[in-house]
Design a binder for these strands. Structure first.
Length: 423
DNA sequence: TCTTCCATCACGT
DNA sequence: CTAACGACGTGATGGAAGA
């Protein structure tokens, strides 16, 4: 243990109102006189008529009105009647994200992308090339602003948790430090909810125990926490509250533990045929992603959300690992039949779990020439799809017009192609 | 009794 | 407007099932 105790230097970079900032970059680059959405109460939001109507990103002014990310657009407009809402442009946001990541990778090979707009840099080994940490962070922040056209916050500390907390301090376009010696002054006075990993459920439980600030959590009895919040979670957030986090900065395994695809339907589905159509569409994308990653799944899960927002899921284990769309589809249909009581569905999802590498999958292929053909067919479909986009090939049963499913498929197009190119 | 599986919940972007 | 709510991925938990 003594071995790894060396003090580290960690940066956390967080794009300010990422989707909104990137949307502005796009608009300004196409029309320099365009209105800068960052200067008015505005938000990037989904299409309410398709029932995707939530806030994806908000401007600082919108935030002042109490608009929060993830809330329904209708609710946001009630809080802020003159809110300007614009649709998203995901493919461009991915480009912006990648440009930023590439710029940041110049500063250290030790980095971890945390999400589309967040990254950790472990600067321990390279900071001597640049100088003072705060000055270096400021320089990075300026570079991104000047070269890419949007602003970021940078948090600086000796571990990931504190760096992330620091990047959340005053926004936008700021660098903050939160080294361990600064924790009592800068972090402990904050409300408990602002601690990373404390959501509304945990907040409620802790408030019931009289804990309102991060400092109170840091000082409270760990056994008491364990009793009310669960063992491992209690230990984790108690350490967080004390500024303790040994988690290393490392790119996470490119192979997921699960591959899922779900869609909120533009209108409720209550008949078997349409439900199966959606399942097929979902299985298509999941299967393609499994094959792109050269992995197999041994578990298939179907998730449903009904018109009353009640969620249900059922899963099954496969005798034989698979990456085949048709196998996924057959399983999904069976699961659906088993547990759907025909209440109208708002959302459907398919998830493939128990992931394993496909390097030994050949064995059974030779047993079953029919299976081999099916697999080759799917491989070809994947290739064509990668070349021309996901809409270029559709299954026969798909050709009958079905607006519900068509939207599900086309919406994923850019994302999937982008992901494929990353690998 | 110990492990594994299943369904659900919670959390983050 | 009398509301009308995304798409992921990860991990924990508690009860059921299995050995």
């Amino acid at each position: 243990m003594e071995h790894g105790d060396r003090e580290r230097l960690i940066f956390h970079i967080d794009v300010n109102s990422a989707f909104l900032s990137w949307e502005c970059v796009y608009r300004l680059s196409h029309d320099p006189d365009a209105l800068d959405l960052r200067t008015i109460p505005s938000a990037v939001g989904g299409d309410a008529s398709m029932r995707h109507g939530i806030v994806l990103a908000k401007s600082p002014l919108a935030r002042k009105y109490g608009v929060t990310t993830g809330e329904p657009l209708a609710q946001a407009r009630r809080k802020c009647p003159n809110l300007t809402v614009v649709p998203s442009r995901f493919d461009f946001y991915i480009k912006c994200s990648r440009r930023m990541m590439e710029l940041l990778e110049e500063y250290t090979p030790d980095h971890e992308k945390f999400s589309i707009d967040e990254i950790f840099l472990d600067m321990t080994e390279t900071i001597h090339l640049f100088g003072d940490p705060l000055a270096t962070a400021s320089q990075i922040r300026e570079r991104i602003k000047n070269e890419l056209g949007f602003t970021v916050n940078i948090g600086i500390s000796s571990n990931k948790l504190l760096a992330k907390m620091a990047s959340d301090f005053e926004k936008p376009d700021r660098c903050h430090t939160l080294f361990p010696h600064e924790v009592p002054g800068k972090m402990w006075p904050l409300p408990i909810r602002e601690l990373f990993f404390v959501g509304s459920a945990a907040q409620k439980k802790m408030e019931a125990l009289g804990l309102h600030t991060i400092g109170q959590l840091a000082a409270c009895d760990l056994e008491l926490l364990k009793a009310h919040l669960g063992r491992s979670y209690a230990v984790l957030i108690h350490q967080y509250a004390n500024g303790v986090d040994e988690d290393p900065v490392e790119e996470r395994d490119p192979v997921n533990k699960a591959y899922g695809n779900s869609i909120t339907l533009s209108r409720d589905i209550s008949d078997h045929d349409n439900a199966c159509q959606v399942l097929l569409s979902l299985c298509e994308t999941v299967g393609a992603r499994l094959r792109a990653d050269h992995v197999l799944c041994s578990n298939v899960c179907v998730e449903l959300r009904d018109w009353e927002f009640k969620n249900q899921s059922h899963q099954m284990t496969l005798a034989e690992p698979t990456d085949s769309t048709s196998v996924l589809y057959e399983c999904s249909c069976r699961l659906l039949k088993d547990f759907w009581d025909m209440t109208p569905l708002r959302l459907m999802g398919v998830r493939a779990g128990k992931i394993a590498d496909d390097s030994f999958s050949q064995i059974s292929l030779f047993d079953d020439p029919g299976l081999l053909k099916k697999k080759e067919f799917e491989k070809t479909v994947d290739k064509i799809r990668n070349k021309y986009g996901i809409d270029s090939i559709k299954r026969a049963s798909f050709l009958q017009k079905d607006s519900i499913v068509d939207h599900a498929a086309s919406k994923k197009k850019h994302l999937n192609r982008q992901e494929d190119m990353d690998r």
